[in-house]
Design a protein around this nucleic acid. Structure first.
Length: 869
RNA sequence: GGGCGAAUAGCUCAGCUGGUUCAGAGCAUCUGCUUUACACGCAGAGGGUCCGGGGUUCGAAUCCCUGUUCGCCCA
């Protein structure tokens, strides 16, 4: 069989993925085995695969595949969420490009477009996950707006409302003027900016000609001013207490009020109070019973209260107002200062504080069990440093604004039967609503036409937080077999960015509806960054195309590249060279296969002591490393687990083992050695399979004949059996081999020329050493002394190959170095406190160091003596 | 402004409750190598005041204090 010298991953990967799908290798149904479930963090239906997904889903696949091999009934549930704001924005954009305005469409017509868009783009990201090798149970693919998930959402809304956890209230919210909707606190990103502070002069009504200067960053809200506040203790303004000022635009008279909130040393110590447009101003306004003048429209343009600026866009208005103030002599000065501004997580628009009537979830009570679960370790965060962040947030959690002024999403199941704010009922259907409304209103003649369903829809996270329950239909049917079997799930893999958006809320929903945790562990990944440390994003254009990467390095290569340097919770500074490393590794494994498959197996093969030693040694090494591997997995140290396998395969297996068992050119190999080699390689492939599913499946099938539907995924994950690894014997071999190789290299002795070696004791692994160094054990009388570790060898060579001066310098260096080393140890040992205080083993180790140093010095001295001849 | 975390080779990281040859790995670097599995390779080598300063201890990368820098979360 001719195997190409370079592994070509893509066709192999496509072929295997199709085969796995055809055989439903990843399907899971409840059975007698213990369940292991992961629910995917549903990507946006509008999304395409980015590097963050690659990392996240690779980790999930590793965990799921390993669980499957460990004998669990592993179930990875895929799906997408509807991404209310993002999707609606995209659909609006698309329609605009076609000349259609959203406002011209009915709700129903718009939703038709949205569904059409979803059906067209919705599956893309899931198809891309298949390229990566994701072993999801695709029959279970869920969508937050499909029937089961939607009904679950309505059910929960009604239930929480009935329990008093959901209420309707007029409150300050974050408003996204671009999406024209409210946002929750978590959807607002605070960014550092350089803002301009405008110093505006307000004339004191009672003292014409006297001005009060107010520093503000938002002159366009001046028309909404209802007071100017100063700190009551601020002596500068004492004389003005109880007076009024004239708002420089529009000329309204407003009072000067006193409030402790005002800091005397920021700006001028005078604060203009605009309750409609600032959270703190709103609080001050409430306290002082001031009116609320809203100068902005929902789209961020100025309203009629904005007077001559009505209709202008807010930032244009800011500029214009400032110009006009300057022209009218009311602008004293401007200065730059560092500030922050809230932006919409989805649209990037600068958010506005806005007073509006919204639906809220009361959080403290729901948060309690979710907080306790993480603090007690019932839900484990990996790494656990996130516990603190989690606690901080949960202890200060504020009520959750769940209504969005959008059409794409779950429409709030509240039906209004009257004009009052509370003239509504919550119901799962219009019919039910009518019955309830009749009862609530006392009007039995109400008809369906008298009911008006709330036009708003729910925050997307209001469906996502039910995900671990709703994918198993556990909300509507809590007794069903699926939820009973798979819930609680085991692991959840996600980014720390959505710890609060999602993880915390899933915990809340989990405890509220089942009394149980939704998952045992939450593995928090890092953020994928570019070499400059910037987060990879489409807008920066610094993210490589995952599909192009997979084409270049293979899915296995990219998976390995992503995992090699990504400990939990740490950011991943991504570099394509990591994928290259992954690809190189796949190629290495591939070539090991080529080597092994190229051997002729024969009973007539000459006996090979080196190979026999190698088999025995590697069996022990493999066993010990597998035990360590399990410890790595137990700690969720996936990078370390992978690195362990990388080194075991490349160094242990390829560099040492294969070189030791490799028959001489043209010679056959004995069946015993060959079988052992194949067995080792099978084991390595199994151990690596969760990380590189494609390559390992391919190699595993090529190594030995296997059935067409026999997959590595169904094989047992290899475990260690506690064989004691003979590290001392290997170290001895390694020291000899490295010493002899270096000896050859320094003296330019070709490998083909055998060298003669002797020493006072022949190492047990001598045949192996001899094979790797082309050395003969024999009389090396008169040979050059050579140190291998702490042992002295004599090596016989032609004397003119020796650079006497260099050898002498080396020996002197050795002597000097180890003499100094010896002195420090002697000092330690002569310290009575050390000898008395340190454990016996430590003291003994020091004695050993001392003896070893002596041996090394002695060898160097012998070398000097030999060189003197 | 409040809270949390980090700082160890050029880069990315490991180093558990202080003690096993004066600190380890991978990558990168350097030097050899047309060795018939692999140059996507083989063999070898170099590279670190463990952020600075104090302290505890027989002994500190590891514990304590302090300073500096960086990151994250929240306001």
């Amino acid at each position: 069989m001719e195997i190409p010298s370079h592994y070509a991953p893509r066709q192999v990967e496509r072929r295997w993925y199709q085969t796995w799908l055809k055989n439903k290798a990843f399907a899971s149904i409840p059975d007698h085995r213990p369940a292991y479930a992961i629910v995917i963090p549903p990507p946006n239906v509008t999304g395409v695969l980015h590097m963050g997904h690659m990392l996240n889903n690779t980790i999930q696949d590793v965990l799921v595949r390993r669980a499957r091999m460990l004998g669990f009934n592993a179930c990875w549930v895929p799906g997408t969420d509807h991404a209310s704001i993002a999707t609606e924005a995209k659909v609006v954009q698309k329609l605009r490009a076609e000349g259609i305005k959203k406002s011209d469409l009915s709700r129903e017509a718009f939703l038709e477009h949205a569904w059409e868009w979803t059906h067209k783009h919705g599956g893309i990201i899931l198809e891309q996950l298949k390229e990566l090798g994701a072993s999801c149970d695709w029959d279970r693919t869920a969508f937050t707006m499909d029937e089961v998930r939607s009904q679950s959402v309505y059910h929960v809304f009604a239930d929480l409302h009935a329990k008093g956890h959901i209420y309707r209230g007029l409150r300050m919210v974050h408003w996204d003027p671009e999406a024209k909707t409210s946002l929750s606190d978590e959807e607002v990103l605070h960014k550092d900016i350089t803002a301009t502070l405008y110093y505006v002069k307000y004339e004191v009504v009672e003292r014409p000609g006297t001005f009060l200067t107010v520093a503000t960053s938002r002159p366009e809200t001046i028309m909404g001013d209802v007071a100017v506040a100063v700190n009551p203790k601020d002596a500068r303004y004492e004389a003005l207490h109880g007076l009024h000022v004239r708002v420089p635009v529009g000329g309204r008279e407003v009072p000067i009020i006193l409030d402790e909130y005002v800091t005397a040393d920021f700006g001028t110590g005078c604060l203009k109070v605009t309750p409609a447009h600032d959270w703190n101003d709103y609080a001050i306004g409430q306290k002082h019973g001031l009116e609320v003048l809203d100068v902005l429209n929902e789209d961020g343009t100025l309203s009629a209260h904005g007077l001559q600026y009505a209709g202008m866009e807010r930032f244009a208005a800011r500029k214009k107002v400032a110009e006009d103030l300057l022209a009218s002599g009311h602008l004293a000065k401007t200065e730059e200062y560092a500030s922050t501004v809230g932006t919409s997580e989805r649209t990037g628009a600068v958010v506005e504080p806005r007073l509006s009537l919204q639906w809220w979830v009361r959080m403290p009570e729901l948060a309690k069990p979710a907080l306790d679960a993480v603090m007690s370790g019932e839900i484990q965060l990996i790494p656990d440093k996130f516990k603190n962040t989690y606690r901080h947030w949960m202890e200060n959690v504020r009520d959750w604004c769940i209504s969005r002024q959008l059409w794409w999403g779950h429409r709030i199941p509240a039906y209004f039967y009257g004009p009052g704010e509370l003239d509504y009922v919550v119901a799962l259907s219009a019919e039910e609503a009518l019955i309830k409304a009749r009862a609530a209103s006392g009007h039995n003649d109400l008809t369906a036409a008298d009911l008006q369903q709330d036009p708003d829809c729910l925050d997307t996270w209001f469906s996502s937080w039910l995900w671990p329950l709703s994918v198993f239909d556990g909300i509507r049917h809590p007794e069903n077999q699926e939820i009973q079997y798979y819930y609680p799930t085991q692991d959840l893999v996600t980014a720390p960015e959505i710890l609060f958006f999602w993880v915390a809320r899933m915990a809340m929903a989990g405890y509220e509806y089942t009394g149980k945790r939704p998952f045992e562990r939450v593995y928090l990944t890092g953020i994928v960054r570019d070499k400059l440390g910037r987060k990879m994003s489409k807008s920066l254009g610094n993210s490589p195309d995952p599909l192009a990467l997979m084409d270049a390095y293979g899915a296995d290569g990219v998976r390995m590249g992503m995992l090699l340097t990504s400990p939990a919770g740490n950011d991943l500074p991504f570099d394509e060279s990591l994928c290259e490393q992954g690809r190189n590794f796949t190629n290495k494994v591939w070539n090991a296969l080529r080597l092994v498959k190229g051997w002729k197996v024969s009973d007539d093969a000459p006996e090979d002591e080196a190979a026999a030693w190698a088999v025995d040694w590697f069996r022990h090494l493999l066993d010990a490393e597998l035990a360590e591997l399990h410890r790595d997995f137990d700690r969720y140290a996936l990078s370390e687990a992978l690195m362990r396998l990388y080194k075991l395969t490349w160094n242990g297996f390829c560099s040492w083992y294969l070189e030791l068992v490799k028959p001489a050119y043209g010679q056959p190999i004995s069946p015993a050695i060959y079988d052992a080699t194949v067995e080792f390689m099978d084991t390595l492939m199994a151990a690596l399979h969760p990380f590189m599913p494609f390559l390992t499946e391919e190699v595993w099938h090529l190594l030995s004949p296997r059935g067409e539907t026999e997959f590595l995924d169904f094989a047992a994950y290899p475990v260690g059996h506690g064989l004691a690894y003979r590290s001392t014997e290997f170290t001895l071999l390694e020291e000899h081999v490295v010493a002899l190789r270096t000896f050859r290299a320094e003296k330019n002795i070709a490998f083909k020329l055998p060298i003669t070696v002797d020493a006072s004791t022949k190492p047990a692994a001598w045949p192996a050493i001899a094979k790797l160094t082309n050395a003969l054990w024999g009389d090396a009388q008169g040979g050059l002394p050579l140190r291998a570790g702490t042992l002295e060898l004599r090596v016989l060579i032609e004397s003119d190959a020796v650079d006497v001066e260099a050898e002498r310098a080396k020996a002197h260096k050795d002597i000097e170095y180890y003499t100094r080393f010896k002195r420090s140890i002697e000092a330690k040992l002569s310290n009575e406190k050390f000898v008395a205080g340190a454990p016996a083993a430590v003291v003994e180790a020091e004695h050993k160091k001392l003896a070893d140093a002596d041996a090394k010095i002695e060898i160097a001295q012998k070398l000097l003596a030999a060189l003197a001849n």
